[in-house]
Design a protein around this nucleic acid. Structure first.
Lengths: 247, 247
DNA sequence: CGTCACTTTGAAAGCTTTCAATAGGAGTGG
DNA sequence: CCACTCCTATTGAAAGCTTTCAAAGTGACG
């Protein structure tokens, strides 16, 4: 349908976590012919409310995506890393602003073409669906975190989430964003985030290895603090809870 | 619009926000041949972590969908009303538990069949996508609410959201859920919700018309309190904000 | 090496929660 | 039909956690 032939020349490169079978086309292959664009620190890739014309694949750097209330309060909806695709789950206009935390390299692709290609390809459609489901699942975890977790649990959950995404030797993780970013992501203030980090360091649970990196020292203790994980007291999986709630 | 005549009796048919063209097949038509099932108050339609085998269309009643943390804290992800479709945006297992708040009537449809039908139909695919985008948008609004709004703003935002969904004459809205449900949805306690409601009544912004219904008296004041709406001071739309955030 | 921005720390204030008790309603049974 | 009971909602007071306000500390960068 589209005479665009460049698209399956290179495979989705090294990072394709949602790895399809070797010969099947991957969602990210769509971007492979596109020009690489660069954004400087603090630059916006697009603004909330902008006509959503493009989908972007992030190659390098980190972004924050956020919404702001009329009075200026900001909520960061998430952080975007290399390998992530941005601007998919919107209809007409972007739901949030996307801004470069560090220098960023991306490839753009027209949304219209993106969707017609996906629409044509029975192999691509499930991948798009999976992408949306993952986004939804992450959003729900965030709702749980914001609605029901304490400041400490939020910070620890955040560190563990980063760790899950980008584990490095020695359980060291990078935190490219500022404390303000973390605060606006976790529904806290900058001071509270700072205090929680300090407290974790003091207790030996984490170790600061620079302003934008920490090493997680006691993973299992952290997991317990995070509030999300079962405490496997005796090693055997806990029975499924069938809580019954009033009315 | 719907060849199914029974559902238009309730408000189910009235609001079809994603209304397709009159002759085009609609996503919900898939359910029209299915048997109607009933669930009693408090009964679970499915549990978080269950194999996701079914998609459900709600015909009558209201549900809550929630996740719980290992220690029992509950976060309600949303309330489901007639016309809504449940269990779409999951891959393998349900991400949350769905429970009947009132007596509920639903029609089930096999997920496998649902997706192969949608997969076959170029007309249905955009509808599914639109559904997922709406879910995503709602989740992000909730993240904004939980992360950055005060208790009063949360309660007012909630009332206005219900009002938007099910406006009734006299701006009266139904609140089938308990205060505990509202609290677990808004990231508050039952007492705080109660206090905020009382305060709104005392100030004449809302009027209690029964335990599970209130009338919104001063919509514009409420909108202003909610924190989400622009204050149209002089009637002309405000210029788009291009806030610039540090680093 | 100085400046600026970000981060940490301290103290007080504030908002929401917790604990406790009362009030209100719905449903049941006499 | 009314009384009783149980569950939900409201209200009050104290406690607690997070925020706010303020100031000092630290690090990146020109």
């Amino acid at each position: 349908m589209y005479s665009q032939t460049t698209i399956s020349v290179t495979r989705g490169a090294v990072h394709s976590p949602v790895g399809p079978a070797d010969l099947a086309p991957a969602l990210k292959d769509l971007f492979s012919g596109q020009i690489v664009e660069t954004f400087a620190v603090g630059e916006a890739l697009f603004w909330e409310g902008d006509q959503a014309g493009q989908i972007l694949e992030v190659l390098e750097g980190a972004l924050r995506v956020y919404k702001i209330l009329p009075d200026g309060r900001r909520a960061i909806m998430g952080f975007i890393y290399p390998g992530d695709v941005l601007g998919v789950s919107v209809q007409d206009r972007y739901l949030f602003t996307a801004e470069a935390i560090t220098a960023v390299k991306v490839r753009r692709f027209s949304r219209g073409r993106f969707f017609s290609q996906v629409n044509e390809s029975p192999a691509l459609r499930p991948q798009l669906f999976a992408l949306l489901c993952d986004e939804m699942s992450a959003a729900q975890d965030q709702i749980m975190l914001l609605g029901r977790k304490s400041a400490e649990e939020r910070v620890v959950s955040f560190l563990l989430a980063i760790h899950r995404k980008c584990a490095a030797p020695g359980n060291e993780i990078e935190l490219p964003m500022t404390r303000l970013d973390m605060a606006d992501y976790l529904g806290l203030t900058i001071e509270t985030v700072s205090r929680m980090m300090t407290s974790l360091v003091r207790r030996g649970l984490i170790h600061s290895t620079g302003r934008h990196s920490v090493a997680l020292r006691k993973l299992s203790a952290l997991r317990q603090i995070s509030g999300s994980d079962e405490i496997e007291a005796d090693g055997q999986p806990l029975p499924a809870r069938r809580a019954v709630w009033p009315n």
